[in-house]
Design a protein around this nucleic acid. Structure first.
Ligand SMILES: [Mn+2]
Ligand SMILES: [Mn+2]
Ligand SMILES: [Mn+2]
Ligand SMILES: [Mn+2]
Lengths: 220, 220
DNA sequence: AGAGTTATTTTGACTAATCAAAATAGTTGG
DNA sequence: CCAACTATTTTGATTAGTCAAAATAACTCT
């Protein structure tokens, strides 16, 4: 079986290679895993020897089919566990990421299947992140963000791509969770400010970097 | 935080020191952890340095208060997880021990509390093993076994102290799970045979070693 | 094209956990 | 009471994963 470290490396390569084809630079990988670059290089060479990813020296890494299969299974565990923690145990969505980071390595495939059934085969986790299917299919639809979408239109939040506890608590407090509706009333790229209107009349202001973490779709 | 290995060592010392006072010999500890004796010695010295247990060279080890506190918490996680897997996920009681062996190290105290509440604060796990309280209290009642109890009396099974999948499947198939009633009709210490009667008229024969794994209490 | 900057790799060292095999202490039977 | 056996400890290696710092390659800008 793959160790915890191996599972984490493979999962992060998957997460950093939006879609699947691009090379992930060693720098991003090392930063995502919170290790120094040399450590990532050493680990990546070992994983390449094991046929789990392809290493193009000085350019980056890409998962092999085997590596991708493992990474998708870990990601499925992570997101189903998050869903379980929120739906069944009523935990706060801001805290489940850290829990799932551990549990994703301890949950067996058998337990995973039963959790999936208990939860009714969910397609998204509490943050709107897509849950890979048992077969390894994952929804890769591209959405606009609050930093890029048209202003004035009625929108629905589909996903919040940022796991940090503080950010999620802020989003929750501002009514910015998946399913919520709103519109962008103003966006000033110079000042970096984005202003939102909620249907309940409330108003929210946030920076363009934070706005980029919130994915939306148009809603008539 | 204690590593997985440390948690396993402390938990096994606790399990091997029925009650709490006796010294656990290094041999038993090494066997329980499936490591060679020298490995156990090395680890035990490190744990003693950290004040988690007391090592009397050539005699054995005993948990300190701190070590015992950690060990009880791990054991509580183990047994509550087993209960969750059987009660909520409907897993077979013969398979949950192996799962819990991993999950006991990945479940946080917060998740533990919520699992406990979800399950209604159970006092025993699916095998009848007592679940330590959050405060670290554990029921240490002593029971007779099918190898030692009086014959002829009506009995109720309270606990099955053997985690192996094969044994538990056998027990299940023979109607020997906690709560089941029965009586010992015959016990021959020479041949090592124990014969049982079930209320439904069924009959079971098993060896005295296996019988010793099944704890019972009298039932009028 | 060369200097400087940045990303990546290499080298050397460390920790936790383990095993194999040799050394030692303790116990026991004649 | 000593030889033999058994349990435990010691010693010397190994593996996985990591960091610090030096070396190297690649890119950028004039
Ligand atoms: Mn993880
Ligand atoms: Mn998520
Ligand atoms: Mn364990
Ligand atoms: Mn149990």
């Amino acid at each position: 079986m793959a160790t915890v470290a191996v599972e984490n490396y493979l999962k992060h390569v998957l997460l950093l290679s939006d879609g699947a084809e691009e090379l992930v630079p060693m720098g991003s990988l090392a930063a995502a895993l919170a290790v120094v670059p040399g450590t990532a290089t050493a680990m990546v060479k070992a994983l390449a020897d094991d046929g789990l990813l392809e290493h193009q020296p000085r350019l980056g890494v890409r998962l092999t089919t085997r590596g991708r299969r493992i990474a998708l299974n870990v990601l499925r565990k992570h997101r189903l566990v998050e869903t379980f923690l929120v739906e069944t145990l009523k935990m706060d969505w801001s805290k489940v990421h850290a829990e799932a980071e551990q549990l994703e390595h301890a949950v067996s495939d058998e337990v995973l299947d039963r959790l999936d059934a208990l939860l009714g085969h969910p397609r998204q986790d509490p943050h709107g992140d897509p849950i890979p299917s048992r077969a390894g299919k994952i929804d890769s639809q591209v959405y606009a963000t609050l930093a890029t979408c048209a202003t004035g239109r009625r929108l629905r939040i589909v996903r919040v791509t940022e796991q940090s506890e503080e950010f999620l608590r802020f989003a929750e407090g501002s009514g910015l969770r998946p399913g919520a509706e709103l519109s962008v009333t103003e966006r000033n790229l110079v000042s970096g400010l984005v202003a939102l209107d909620r249907p309940d009349g409330g108003t929210v202001a946030l920076g363009v970097a934070a706005a980029g973490k919130i994915l939306v779709e148009p809603r008539g």
